[in-house]
């Protein structure tokens, strides 16, 4: 066990906001007390209203640990939420927000753990997986990796351009995008929820995975994890992270 250290609140400054999809934006924060984290960990943010009312939520880091001093959180706008609409509709570069972390241990990967790496993300479940892929691209690009990325439509594929560039630059990384609701004219990839055939394709491309990370809604994760076990993947190699029906 690492030495327990206090995970203290700090005031982070928003440096950059990038629109990823119609409902998802990435926020880059500068942290006064940045410390190294592991790809897959999350941070808590805390917003305080004038009357003292506070709301806290957890968001996974999308950036790689090599980007010292900064973290990027990718946040999906949840209708009826109060924290994600603040980030989407109000926050601007220069705004200061209380934040603490990194937090979380099991759902993390570092190059030293080796591969092959099989990642499955449903919607914004891809965020912590992107941190792993960015970390891998910079420090261990020889490790075979496959990302199965399930999105409702092509517009909603978070990090699409960067993932395609990553795949073109590095043949040991393979991307499988499946679109569950609508597909553009001429789409040749899978257009359905993750099923046994998609899992088989991913396992063929990855080889026997040493580490599997699966993140998304409970339904996405439960389905994907059960398919993986049915396909012969050792359950002990599968790590999951699930977000609830509402959230933020």
């Amino acid at each position: 066990m690492a030495t327990p250290t206090k995970i203290a609140w700090q005031t982070a400054t928003i440096e950059r906001i990038v629109t990823e999809t119609p409902s998802v934006k990435s926020f880059t924060f500068r942290l006064p007390e940045w410390r190294p984290f592991r790809a897959g960990q999350h941070f808590d943010v805390r917003l305080t209203a004038l009357d003292g009312y506070r709301a806290q939520r957890s968001y996974s880091a999308a950036s790689e640990p090599e980007r010292a001093g900064l973290i990027e959180l990718t946040i999906e706008r949840m209708e009826g939420g109060e924290v994600s609409p603040y980030f989407h509709d109000v926050a601007m570069p220069g705004d200061r927000v209380e934040l603490r972390g990194p937090i979380g241990g099991p759902f993390t990967w570092a190059g030293g753990m080796g591969g092959p790496l099989l990642l499955l993300g449903g919607g914004s479940g891809v965020v912590p997986l992107m941190s792993m892929l960015r970390h891998r691209a910079g420090s261990a690009p020889e490790i075979p990796a496959v990302l199965v990325h399930s999105a409702r439509s092509l517009d909603e594929v978070i990090y699409r351009d960067e993932l395609l560039r990553m795949q073109n630059a590095n043949p040991t990384f393979k991307l499988i995008v499946t679109l569950t609701r609508s597909r553009p004219e001429g789409w040749t990839g899978p257009a359905r929820r993750v099923d046994a055939a998609i899992v088989k394709d991913a396992l063929t491309k990855a080889g026997t995975p040493r580490h599997v990370y699966c993140c998304g809604s409970d339904g996405f994760v439960e389905n994907a994890a059960n398919l993986l076990v049915a396909a012969g993947v050792d359950a002990a190699t599968i790590r999951t992270e699930r977000f609830g029906p509402t959230g933020a």
Binding site: A49, R54, G80
Partner: peptide, 12 residues
């Protein structure tokens, strides 16, 4: 620290 532009209380 008060967060600029955050009012909260939007949830039930």
């Amino acid at each position: 620290m008060v967060t600029r532009g955050f009012f909260g209380l939007k949830r039930p």
